[in-house]
Nucleic acid binder design. Structure first.
Length: 447
RNA sequence: UCCCCGGUAGCUCAACGGUAGAGCGGCUGACUGUUAAUCAGUAGGUUCCAGGUUCGAAUCCUGGCCGGGGAGCCA
């Protein structure tokens, strides 16, 4: 006989008036003498189960009394509609069969500090908001892959262990690789996904990426997941058109399918409902002007309302600058054509302005920061070699990458979207650490 | 790496130089409509660590450890 329940809580409305067997965990329990209310969760939802002493055996009533928070059990009972129940339905319990009795579950429905919650992340993921958030993350990933799969892309996964730095500038996690020297955990799949692009035309890779940066902010993880599409014969404008449709599709699908989770998180979705192509585009030059005008007027930036620092042309934006630019628009905004000096070596220079490159950062609204970085890649082998030298990189390490330009090179573009930042924006979650099951941060690797 | 803040019961916090406390959670009991129930009782402490000042330190000083918020960097 199967151990599975007869149905799941998300489908309970279809069983009104019928007897069901549910299996799950006790989310909360209230005793009132001869009456016990159990909030049972099974991963698909939560429902109130009412145990009347006169309706069950003495053994079952005692069993119900013994169930502490997060005890696991089967509950048999009749489904009935009842306006007094939060979901509109409740279970009139006939039998309670404990699987594992728990007392002293550490995470109570009261307030807890973040240090405690992070140390109990393995249990915290059961809590309703964390559950909703991770469900939205799942939907973001599913929607992203679905969009690409439906638009002719082939998933082409790239290695995690790599021999050299892809971008050279950021810190990498290193590990000894047998007798072959050091290997590094990939900070991007981009260089490898370009090889796939030359085979399939439209490809994407999706997987974890690693940055050993000592970043200690609400927008950073040392291990995060990135989805990186790459398209042959696409220029940077084609790239941005793809991005705005891609992001809009993801937002739309989360709004359609995870409305209940967004409600659990108390996310105001009015801004999200306006997300549709096209997204505004402003140049790096225009952004600098806007920032300096605002800085001169003493504009301050949330959340701390610090004054916006002025910038000189050629400097990269800080978090306050991105937040300010994003605040001028209701949709995500592309900032295009950054100075070549502040960007990676492989970006294609603009024809009549070689000091800037064909690239765009997509900045999410409401201060959630950069969710996509993308560019048109250099397709000329000599220019690429020159850029590698200018960045102080070892040409020998990049021979395979240069081969992609030696044999049938074509103009091409691509981008990388951070799953966690995108999820944080859509879910309206302040801190990125809650958008991944087990965040890896500067001062935390347990559990 | 830099700046700021914190560490007291399982949890959230109070006590701020003079007997270490409350609420929640646990346990025992009461209650037929609770939603973080309520009520009564009960157990529970190396006040992060090491020095120092003092008649006396959770409290003041020095150093360390561990966290949190932000910056830079990035998705």
């Amino acid at each position: 006989m199967s151990l599975l329940p007869s149905t799941y809580i998300e489908h309970i409305a279809g069983y009104e008036g019928q007897q069901v067997t549910l299996a799950g965990w006790v989310y909360n329990k209230t005793e009132k003498g001869k009456l016990i209310f159990i909030q049972l969760r099974d991963g698909t939802g939560t429902i109130q189960c009412v145990v009347f002493k006169k309706n069950v055996s003495e053994e079952a009533f005692k069993a119900a009394q013994s169930l502490g928070q997060e005890s696991s059990c089967y509950i048999d009972g009749m489904v009935r509609a009842d306006p007094r129940s939060p979901s509109g339905y409740e279970i009139d319990v006939r039998d309670v069969r404990p699987v594992s009795i728990t007392q002293d579950y550490p995470i109570t429905p009261k307030e807890h500090g973040i240090e405690f919650l992070m140390a109990h992340r393995h249990l915290w993921v059961r809590s309703s908001k964390q559950h909703a958030l991770l469900r939205i993350r799942h939907e973001v990933i599913a929607a992203a892959q679905e969009y690409l799969n439906n638009n002719g892309f082939v998933r082409f996964d790239t290695p995690i262990l790599t021999p050299v730095a892809a971008e050279g500038t950021t810190n990498l996690f290193a590990t000894q690789y047998f007798d072959l020297g050091m290997a590094y955990l990939a900070q991007t799949g981009q260089l490898y996904v370009e090889a796939g692009m030359m085979s399939f035309g439209k490809v994407y890779c999706f997987g974890p990426t690693f940055r050993a940066e000592k970043s200690k902010t609400r927008r950073h993880l040392t291990e995060f997941w990135m989805i990186e599409p790459e398209v042959a014969f696409a220029d940077q404008e084609d790239n941005m058109v793809l991005q705005e449709h891609f992001v809009s599709y993801i937002v739309k699908r989360v709004l359609e399918r995870r409305a209940e989770d967004l409600r659990t998180l108390e996310r105001d979705t009015t801004a999200l409902e306006k997300i549709a192509p096209p997204f505004p585009r402003i140049s790096y030059d225009e952004a600098i002007d806007l920032i300096n005008k605002a800085a001169a007027q003493g504009v301050t930036v949330p959340p701390e309302q610090h004054p916006l620092p002025p910038l000189e042309w050629g400097e990269d934006f800080g978090a306050p600058h991105e937040t300010y630019i994003a605040s001028l628009f209701e949709k995500p905004v592309f900032i295009v054509n950054y100075p070549a000096a502040v960007k990676a070596f492989y970006m294609q220079p603009v024809a009549d302005r070689p000091e800037v490159v064909h690239c765009a950062d997509l900045i999410a609204p409401e201060g959630y920061g950069e969710i996509i970085g993308g560019s048109q890649r250099i397709h000329d082998v000599e220019l690429l070699e020159q850029r590698l030298r200018e960045h102080g990189l070892n040409i020998e390490d990049y021979q395979w990458y240069l081969d992609l330009r030696r044999y049938g090179s074509v103009p091409h573009s691509g981008f990388g979207m951070g799953i966690e930042r995108c999820t944080a924006w859509i879910a309206g979650t302040r801190h990125i650490r809650e958008t991944i099951s087990f965040p890896r941060q500067l001062y935390r690797i347990y559990p």
